[in-house]
Design a binder for these strands. Structure first.
Length: 573
DNA sequence: TTAGGGTTAG
């Protein structure tokens, strides 16, 4: 039974593994008889294989009867190493239920999985079971328990298990250290760190990383310099710290001087440039990287998507598809965002079929980008369905819905969603209000809009210039030009061309020369190409019969060899 | 046991 299934499995590896064909073939030729121990080796082999293989392993191993404790352990470990944590726990429980005794192998893997998915209940049950079966005397199991409790924030429990370990190894110490760092107890963490008899790179990295995460680069850097044998991770942690502080120059210096860069180093830098909007530098790094992995593609696609270059994002995505890389929910969320910016709603269908075909689960983040895509395409039904199926609705997903309502002029729905999120104590942010305000603006609900705008301070939000822009647009369209102008004058920041442009537009709608002139003069000052604004002003003059002024403006435009460029005059759209 | 990729506006 085991024998034939494994053979079949290896053959499938040849088919699915593609790039690893030769390797799989070798293994196939080498094993004439297959014993349970070979399950382990086979699983090792598939470590680097595509997710298809992972899914396949899961399916095929479900069919096994009579697996021994060792093979079960291998399977549990395999799943845990592939970050299939929920599956790890469920397979472990399956093993337990079929009466197979647990091994230290299986137990450490399942404890890790419980920690990762924050499964306290099963973690404690497994602890109890380990106590009963005597496995708690094993340092690996004990260390696993320390790690579990440390990660889940049960620092007292972690300390207690740790104290019981007869022969503590460095991993045991590191797990405890991580516990104190997780619980935010820096002093205790520091004292644990000082007590570690044989500090390894991980001990140092843990403490450096905790400073780097807090933005305390002074401490992070001095510890880094004091560290005897720096690993790549140490360098990456430091670079990551500087990236988080937007110190890209310093990050780059360390990146350039580190002895051995790995994929993580490149990705850290690329995502740093992404956040600071430096697409060029990100591109430059991406081009120079010799062995690109999937995550680098993800990082670069995201860089394009987040910096207003959706077409480049899609180009790189198709390159990625042509390579050996399989996109996952993370890749797709960025790609959906790119399509959303281009207004290509049909892409949603493609994603949905792709996801079904490749067994990718649509998680909350991918759902949110799809919600945005569908809302922009006016498909409220599809967006709502995704929205109601979310595991956890947050500020971003609510904002995506409300934004969509704003675009589609659905003020009532926007308001309903907003009240719902407030009731659930989900804090709104600036994007939420952009959506809400534009919903009111598009529906001409000036009073509601005004109150909404004023309520921003109740949520500790300072309206941005864009929020003022929407308000000016709303008041202006309603003919309340005076109020709009007063609002601009009251702005705590410099009004941008968008704000003045909104007033100019409104002045045109209501043939108001006075505000048109004021608005236009500011727009001309703020933008390099004043053509659109000037021609708008000329139209206002014409509309009230001031032909001479209109001609003067047009002559002035002509004189400066300016030509009306439709593309630039966004005011007219 | 440490380091890397994702969603909402403009």
């Amino acid at each position: 039974m085991l024998d034939s299934k494994l053979r079949f499995f290896l053959q499938r590896c040849v088919v699915l593994g593609q790039g690893k064909q030769v390797h799989a073939q070798l293994v196939l030729n080498r094993f004439n008889h297959l014993e349970p121990v070979l399950v382990h080796q086979t699983l090792q082999l598939t470590k680097e294989f595509s997710r298809n293989v992972v899914n396949y392993v899961k399916r095929i191993l479900k069919g096994f009867n009579g697996l021994d404790s060792f093979s079960w352990g291998c399977l549990v470990r395999f799943l845990s190493q592939h970050r299939k944590f929920k599956e790890t726990v469920s397979v472990y429980i399956e093993m337990h239920n079929s009466g197979v005794p647990s091994s230290s192998h299986a137990i450490t893997s399942v404890l890790r999985a419980c920690g990762k998915i924050e499964n306290v209940i099963d973690g404690k049950l497994i602890h109890a079971q380990a106590l009963k079966t005597g496995l708690c005397g094993c340092v690996y199991v004990q260390t696993g328990l320390v790690g579990l409790y440390a990660r889940l924030g049960y620092i007292e429990m972690a300390q207690k298990v740790f104290d019981d370990i007869a022969e503590k190894n460095t991993v045991s110490w590191n797990s405890l250290l991580q516990g104190y760092l997780e619980s935010g107890n820096v002093d205790e963490a520091r004292s644990v760190f000082d007590k570690i008899p044989e500090k390894d790179a991980v001990s140092w990295n843990l403490i450096i990383s905790s400073y780097a995460k807090k933005g305390d680069m002074g401490n992070a850097c001095s510890l880094f310099l004091a560290m005897p044998l720096k690993s790549s991770a140490s360098w990456n942690i430091l670079i990551g710290g500087y990236v988080n502080c937007r110190e890209m120059k310093l990050a780059r210096t360390y990146f350039d001087t580190m002895p051995q860069r790995n994929s993580v180093s490149w990705i850290t830098m690329i995502s740093g440039y992404t956040k600071s909007g430096d697409v060029q530098s990100a591109e430059e790094l991406f081009r120079h990287m010799s062995k690109k992995d999937k995550l680098v593609y993800d990082a670069m696609i995201t860089c394009y998507a987040q910096n207003g270059k959706p077409k480049d994002a899609l180009k790189l995505f198709s390159q990625m598809l042509n390579s050996d890389f399989q996109p996952d929910e993370i890749t797709l969320s960025s790609v959906v965002s790119a399509n959303s910016q281009l207004g290509d709603t049909s892409f949603g269908k493609w994603v949905e079929s792709y996801v079904t075909e490749h067994g990718i689960k649509i998680d909350d983040l991918l759902s949110t980008s799809l919600i945005d895509l569908y809302m922009k395409g006016g498909d409220f039904a599809k967006a709502s369905k995704l929205f109601s199926n979310l595991n956890k609705k947050d500020t971003v997903s609510y904002s995506a819905m409300i934004m969509g309502c704003g675009i589609n002029g659905m003020a009532t729905e926007a308001n309903r969603l907003f009240r719902e999120m407030i009731k659930k104590k989900i804090p709104p942010n600036l994007v939420t209000f952009t959506g809400l305000l534009s919903a009111y603006s598009h529906s001409g609900l000036v009073q509601e809009g005004y109150e909404c705008f004023k309520s921003m301070k109740d949520y500790n939000l300072e309206p941005s210039a864009d929020h003022y822009g929407i308000m000016v647009d709303m008041l202006g369209r309603a003919g309340r030009l005076e109020e709009a102008y007063e609002l601009i004058k009251s702005m705590p920041m410099q009004p941008n061309a968008g704000v003045w442009g909104a007033l100019l537009l409104a002045s045109g709608l209501h043939n108001n020369v006075e505000f048109g002139e004021i608005a236009c003069s500011h727009c001309v000052e703020l933008e390099t190409d004043p053509t659109g604004y000037l021609s708008h002003l000329a139209n206002i003059y014409t509309s009230v019969g001031r032909w001479d002024d209109a001609r003067n403006v047009r002559d002035a435009m002509e004189e400066k060899k300016l030509r009306k460029t439709l593309a630039c005059s966004w005011v007219e759209t």
